[in-house]
Design a protein around this nucleic acid. Structure first.
Lengths: 287, 287
DNA sequence: TCGGATTACGTGCACCGTAATGATC
DNA sequence: GATCATTACGGTGCACGTAATCCGA
């Protein structure tokens, strides 16, 4: 077996052409490198260089050996990267969700059950969530449609209903309830990380009416400072009070009522059993 | 970069299950191996084992690393074999021929021009010779048909005519010349390494009449000891005398007259120019 | 008590550097 | 004389061995 350092030195010599240049790059001296190359030749039992008394050049066999050396070094490097990547992935539970609210609910539940692991979260649409669940990029996903797939285990999680918040002076403020169609023509404030709700808004409202903010800070700032309508939900309202002087109106459309499901690969069900149970219990307690 | 010896040790631990067993196989001690595995983990920046105070077992990351280690070791091993193989091939001229006589003539010519190289020779049929010439298994081939292929360079070499040798008492001994058909029904002695001549004999004579000897020694023995007919050629007769009391009869068929060609890959023509010229000269001198 | 891992300490070898030599331009 | 490879010799780091300790069946 040829040690890696010899292969590194060989490749350095091949790329630099002379022992001196290669030795500089390797932070060793010319004689050391000279000896190494002799040693390499001895171990392989072949000569890799044409030695012209004051110049060494790779011969055909040498070039052939360099190709192997490069492949081995590359694989070695790939191992270093690959193993620590693998280890990191093994120590993190990746969760994908179609909306921020259920994700925010589920994350602490997961963290509690897997204390020694990192929890990484991400928003994406259902289709992407499922493909990435299947290719192991996610271990758990939160969907808003129950998938029809035997390879997945799926459990009903919680529900969320959308509301619109308008100032008392707003034309719609007197309504007991509205639909998306009623909102057409009015500007609405939106955050950008609201998951699948964004798809619904794009579908049901006009693009030019959507005032999308890139940060939640900017959104909250504008909510306070302006009289523009914005969305909220029953779930959000449970958590925080709305600014005073605003009217909260439920949205009647079917689209505005989301049902969330937690899913994992069927074969991973046991591993995340504790999470599924804790999620069910949490919903139950909150009722 | 991870040195090879660490990977070898890792794989040994993986296959033997305990440090002790692995250490025995590696001809090192338990403590040395223990330290090595710690070093490996430090270099990769991950833990590869579950350490249970009196037992170490590979964890998932460890198993993943072992897969890489095996691949690297295999590639390393392949390099050792591959490089010396390559070198050996580079130092030998492989010659394939359809018949022994021209091969015996050409071999010393090649050896003279490539003194520092080994010459390896082999008999095969024309089709095989050409495919193996193209895939570099042969550098030079001797054919008995001129190939129609631009990728090959081909030169007329020499010719050989087949004769049959019979005892004076043989029914055919009075003939001035014969054909293969005349030989049908008579047993004939044959060596087994006669190249394409064997194909001709099988085609033109009956299988049950061919008394094929596996060694030339056995053949010569039988030629001396029996009165069975056997083949010779003008070329062979130039070299050695026939046993006394035998009649040599030429064979008239077109098949019995072989024309040999030397060929190499067109792009290698320059490399073997000296051989082609020397071969031509040798034929010229012998006329 | 034995099988198996780790820690502590000393040693030898293999690889390295310095210095000198050789060779070619 | 500059550039580049090799040889000779002395130093050092590191992987190894020995011995001792620890732990669990």
């Amino acid at each position: 077996m040829i040690e890696i350092y010899l292969l590194e030195q060989l490749v350095a010599v091949a790329t630099h052409g002379t022992l001196l240049k290669a030795a500089e790059e390797l932070y060793i001296t010319q004689p050391a490198l000279s000896r190494s190359m002799k040693k390499l030749e001895a171990q392989l039992g072949v000569s890799l260089f044409d030695r012209d008394n004051s110049k060494i050049t790779l011969n055909k066999t040498g070039e052939y050996a360099v190709e192997y050396a490069k492949r081995i070094l590359e694989l070695n490097h790939e191992m270093c990267e690959g193993v620590s990547d693998f280890d990191r992935r093994r120590r993190t539970v990746s969760v994908g969700a179609c909306a921020p609210f259920p994700l925010g609910e589920l994350t602490p539940i997961i963290q509690e059950r897997f204390v020694e692991m990192a929890v990484s979260t991400e928003l994406a649409d259902d289709e992407r969530l499922i493909t990435r669940l299947k290719n192991r990029a996610y271990q758990l996903v939160i969907l808003h449609k129950r998938p029809d797939d035997d390879n997945l285990y799926c459990q009903h999680y919680l529900e969320e209903k959308l509301y619109i918040v308008v100032p008392e002076t707003h034309p719609l403020s007197a309504r007991d309830s509205i639909t998306f169609d009623d909102l057409r023509g009015y500007n609405v404030l939106l955050g950008n990380s609201i998951g699948f709700w964004m798809d619904i808004c794009r579908l049901r409202l006009k693009t030019e009416n959507l005032l999308i903010q890139n940060s939640m800070d900017a959104l909250f700032e504008l909510i306070e400072a302006s009289t523009l309508p914005f969305f909220t939900s029953d779930r959000i309202m449970e958590r925080q009070n709305q600014p005073s002087g605003r009217i909260v109106i439920p949205i009647d459309d079917q689209d505005a009522h989301a049902v969330y499901y937690i899913a994992c690969l069927a074969k991973d069900r046991n591993k995340y059993d504790a999470v599924f149970n804790a999620a069910r219990d949490a919903v139950f307690r909150s009722m």
